[in-house]
Nucleic acid binder design. Structure first.
Lengths: 231, 231
DNA sequence: TGAATAGTGTCTTTGAGACACTATATG
DNA sequence: CATATAGTGTCTCAAAGACACTATTCA
């Protein structure tokens, strides 16, 4: 993985084919809110608005490699879960010319996030404050699409593992589900269900900081994304 | 929609950015087999092998427009259901240079398919005969991915509507499900389930051709893709 | 009237969801 | 010992799946 920008030997916006860019929707939880990382817009159309971290893909680069490069460049974050979302095209998406955007989304835990990112360079915007008024181009639409995908993944996979620390209590886990899915769950039913899925392993440790009665800590049994039926 | 090829004013395979192509996985049912439409490979790497219908996207063209154009060019089929699948990239995907492929899949009923297509120009290949030995580039992989998506859509949406005629018997419907999902269903449970979903409307007509006892014909209640829980 | 396919109902099991009390540590 | 949060069990209802016979048309 390289943090170098590719160099372009042509005026890429004047070619007879469209330019392919990669845009990244980085979700994290911050103060019990689902947030997206955005950067200041760098040209006229984007003036006064924020945009997704993104960039033009270079020759010889794969989409995954470009996504990694851009993520490191703008957020200093590497090696996290990411997934290709959708490739957006359309007339007049971008003032620079004909740009097609292959979008990715990633999910990062708050601790990993805050330790690596430079908050003077990027903004952390709560999902419910994102709209076409605050975000440039069609990026609000892309973020909305990413959010739908994230919700789906939360319901049907163990993707939640990417936002939690190595050990966590069932209460923390339920909090994440409730925030991302924007609904509440009955504690007993939630625990019954989540434990029956076999995606958790009990540890012998307890969280004594966040509550009166210490809560048993769990870890995830699978290190990879796995499809399961949840909730 | 135009059937013209875009014209390229540069040598697009020598640019400093990758070239974006669109490839289409067209599924249809033929003689009780799930089949994919393939075309002869047009260059060295693809020699003796078949490829997906595909082409380079032109400037000012959206991905959906390019998909429509290529579908008409290679199969003479227009106005059918299609969906973007995934955008594939990778080192050495294509001998011509750095090509990234945005893939689509579509689903076409046999009658519409046979009436429009020219079978001297394209091949109809049963899904279970597709492998890297018979299909060029990474197209076998793309087809496999498309098949997974199709199976998923069959289970959770009314996408099956795109492969059936306007009117059909429950037996025909069950056949399609059994072929695509590659498993069998109990007739009573299938009918109970499918009718409870409310995605069908009973007609007053009967199919008297395909069986001794005439079967009641049904139509779909929704003209759009709709998420439902099936099977 | 026999052959072929359409069409129908019940029982059992499983999972989802509603719901309230006890257990344990801290100050 | 009061408070705050962890942790636990039962009942009900709905949907999935197993399973076998009757109905209708045609030759």
């Amino acid at each position: 993985m390289s943090t170098l920008q590719p160099t372009y030997t042509d005026d890429i916006f004047k070619l007879s084919i469209p330019v392919l860019a990669v845009d990244i929707v980085l979700f994290t939880l911050y103060k019990d809110q689902l947030c997206v990382v955005l950067v200041p817009g760098r040209n006229e159309w984007a003036q006064w608005k924020l945009t997704l971290p993104g960039g033009i893909i270079g020759r010889g680069e794969t989409l995954d490699e470009a996504a990694d490069r851009i993520l490191v460049r703008d957020t200093n974050i590497a090696g996290v879960y990411k997934e290709q979302l959708y490739t957006f095209s359309g007339h007049n998406r971008d003032d620079r010319g004909d740009v097609i955007s292959c979008s990715y989304y990633t999910l990062v835990g708050a601790q990993a996030f805050l330790s690596r990112i430079d908050l003077t360079k990027v903004a952390l915007v709560p999902y419910d404050q994102i709209s076409s008024d605050t975000v440039a181009y069609d990026h609000a639409h892309i973020i909305q699409y990413a959010y739908q995908r994230l919700q789906w993944k939360m319901e049907y996979t163990n993707v939640v593992r990417n936002i939690l620390p190595l050990q966590f209590s069932l209460r923390e886990l339920q909090n994440v589900y409730e925030i991302v899915l924007d609904k509440t769950f009955d504690k007993r039913n939630f625990r019954k269900k989540i434990l029956s899925l076999g995606m958790l392993i009990e540890t012998n440790e307890y969280d004594t900081e966040n509550s009166k009665r210490p809560a048993k800590l769990y870890t995830f049994s699978d290190s990879e994304l796995k499809i399961i039926g949840i909730l």
